[in-house]
């Protein structure tokens, strides 16, 4: 570009007066920034126009009114706004800084809470188990007390039932109270009956002819820790026998499944 020709074209004067279209104004600005000579010339033109305007003002600068600085009072507002903005910004940052550890703490607390809930749940289950066990022990204790009470009575006698080969001929102790008809059987040597089967107690009231009367099923499923089983028998019994029957029980004893037999 020929700078001299460009200057002499008059475009810089049009530029300073703002008379060029916008695209040309931008183009001239770009060239001014590129070429210091153009910038210098533009500053001269500008100074000339400023001087011309000042001289055409009809007054000197000492007769100008003072600048009304109250016009810019929004400076304070702006500063206040900026202060408020900064305050909000700082509060936001502080809140964020507090929020992050808080979130971490909350997450930790949540996990701890879940863990605590799980432990409480486990403890409740254990408590339930313990309660059941206590109830079971109480029942066992009550039964044991009742059995002991029966054993302590004078009318209670010890009867020995002789075991068959099914229990290797071991003897089986029975405590019988004739006045109440109650019977305690030490079932410890009886093996657990097969599934679907149960021991049945028979009261034998006559040997000739043999007259067995069912005195009920010996329930093995409950109170397993209690080796003594209580039952009620016919007061006219002269002997007792135990057979293995189906769970429903039988009307007549299956002598092939006789486990023990003994007279009073």
């Amino acid at each position: 570009m020929n700078i001299r020709e460009y200057i002499e074209s008059g475009i810089l004067e049009l530029y300073v007066t703002g008379a060029l279209p916008e695209d040309q104004m931008e183009e001239v600005t770009k060239r001014i920034n590129e070429y210091p000579e153009l910038k210098e010339e533009v500053e001269k033109i500008e100074l000339a126009l400023i001087s011309f305007s000042e001289k055409a003002a009809g007054i000197d600068k000492f007769n100008l009114p003072s600048l009304d600085n109250s016009l810019f009072s929004n400076k304070k507002q702006s500063q206040t706004k900026q202060t408020i903005y900064k305050l909000y910004r700082n509060i936001s940052i502080a809140a964020l800084l507090l929020l992050i550890p808080s979130l971490i703490f909350n997450a930790y607390q949540y996990l701890e809470n879940q863990n605590s809930k799980r432990i409480i749940s486990d403890l409740r289950n254990q408590e339930s188990i313990f309660t059941d066990q206590i109830e079971s022990l109480k029942t066992s204790s009550t039964i044991a007390d009742s059995n002991i009470e029966l054993l302590k009575q004078n009318e209670t006698t010890r009867v020995t039932l002789k075991g068959t080969e099914k229990i290797e001929s071991k003897t089986l102790a029975v405590f019988y109270n004739k006045s109440s008809g109650k019977l305690l059987i030490d079932r410890s040597i009886l093996p657990e009956p097969p599934k679907g089967m149960a021991y049945q107690l028979w009261s034998i009231t006559s040997m000739d002819p043999l007259t067995p009367v069912s005195s009920g099923m010996l329930n093995f499923s409950e109170l397993n820790n209690n080796s003594l089983l209580l039952s009620s028998v016919d007061r006219n019994a002269i002997a007792f026998g135990i057979t293995l029957e189906t769970e429903a029980g039988a009307d007549q004893p299956n002598l092939d499944q006789l486990y023990a037999l003994g007279t009073i």
Binding site: L49, I50, S51, F52, S53, E54, K55, A56, A57, G58, I59, D60, K61, L64, L67, N69, F72, N74, K75, S78, Q79, Q82
Partner: peptide, 22 residues
């Protein structure tokens, strides 16, 4: 938003601007 510089702008350009306006 530093309003203190408006006084400088005024000192520098007010008479010229007044000339244009007038």
């Amino acid at each position: 938003r530093d309003s203190s510089v408006m006084e400088i702008v005024y000192q520098k350009y007010a008479l010229s601007l007044f000339g244009v306006i007038y």
